[in-house]
Design a protein around this nucleic acid. Structure first.
Lengths: 130, 130
DNA sequence: CTCCCACGTACCATCGATGTCGGGTTCGGG
DNA sequence: CCCGAACCCGACATCGATGGTACGTGGGAG
């Protein structure tokens, strides 16, 4: 399929798809005229790329990681090197820490939201200075 | 305390502390000579600011949020407006989605790491909380 | 009074993914 | 053949927090 359809089906802009290719994350064929021609599997791949970006991985790391992932087509086409595995383990721990941080921040937001709810009740039923 | 000590105790650069002030997140007193003079409570406050930044909140929203938080000094100095509460609830959901995404990405990394480990000698891999 | 470090302000640079713009080319239906 | 839509490419802009630089000043110890 061409870039327009892939953009529509993934929700990712054409600009970003070209950027992904520039970063080595996608390698579409080209029509004789030079237009990009993506296989069906590109849809899943783009979605996975987006997830990894959301996890804070940089394009360079994703580029190393992608060939080691189980593709929709079958098994991984490459096996991660020990060095890459170490880096991924580090990313894994970073993600764990990030999840913990996010949980704390979420709790903070909950506290403020709760306090505001109580405050509103207090406004309706004043109880003296606090 | 002055900015250098606060930077040392929080691990946040002086540059960032000045930026926080510029964004209305900190309002230190000034010495007669113009140097910033922070209260002891600024340490906790800066740490909280960092957590909120890590959660993806922008400085403007943190500026609104901070006065509504329970301070080390006592209760919140302000109560969140309904409008702010709505925005915070939206942030809360965004954080929830982010956590879910991060879990998925972590699983992806685990899969790659596992695949790489198969066939090799058993590798000790930290098994964090699921 | 003099040092010198810590501090002040102001400004420009950086990172990475993405937006945007402009000008040129390909494609496919009529 | 013609036209408009879709595509290509290259280059510049953007966002936000932070780093870094340059240059001037406060402040405490000697």
């Amino acid at each position: 399929m061409r870039i327009g359809e892939l953009a529509r089906r993934t929700g990712v802009s054409e600009r970003s798809l070209r950027y992904y290719e520039e970063q080595g994350l996608l390698r579409p064929d080209r029509t004789p005229g030079g237009h990009r021609d993506y296989p069906e599997s590109a849809v899943d791949r783009v979605i996975r790329i987006q997830e990894l970006f959301a996890a804070g991985l940089h394009s360079a790391k994703i580029a190393q990681l992608l060939p080691c992932m189980r593709d929709a087509d079958g098994g991984p086409s490459e096996i991660a090197t020990p060095r890459l595995v170490a880096e991924l383990a580090a990313e894994r721990e970073r993600i764990d820490r990030m999840i913990a941080d996010l949980r704390r921040s979420r709790d903070v937001l909950d506290e403020v939201i709760d306090t505001a709810s109580e405050g509103r009740a207090t406004v309706l039923r004043p109880r003296g200075a606090a």
